[in-house]
């Protein structure tokens, strides 16, 4: 599977920065998933639980209080104030 760099950034610094296969979360218009090679786009993120598929196929789950997702060619940045990891 192709991977892309996902950064989860908070005011306390980067909470996560790794090559991943996908991230699924709730945008302003409903559920969305980002895979490698997604066109650049920006969306706000609603408070939701999100799932990240790591490069080794493992799944990481967390909850966020909302934020902003910005996808650019070289990386995807998820700006959020607080994240609670489930595992």
């Amino acid at each position: 599977m192709k991977t892309f760099l996902l950064k989860i950034s908070s005011p306390e610094g980067d909470l996560f920065s790794e090559e991943v296969i996908s991230i699924r979360l709730r945008g302003s218009e409903g559920e969305l998933a980002v895979l490698a090679g997604h066109i650049p786009f920006v969306s706000s993120v609603k408070p939701c639980s999100f799932k990240i598929e790591l490069s080794d196929g493992e799944e990481k789950e967390g909850r966020t209080g909302g934020g902003m997702l910005s996808v650019s060619k070289d990386k995807t940045v998820f700006l959020t104030g607080n994240v609670e990891w489930k595992n």
């Binding site: 302003s28 218009e29 969305l32 650049p40 969306s43 902003m68 650019s72």
Partner: peptide
């Protein structure tokens, strides 16, 4: 970049 759903909502 594309703004979803549109610029003003974002």
């Amino acid at each position: 970049a594309i703004f979803e759903p549109d610029e003003i909502t974002v």
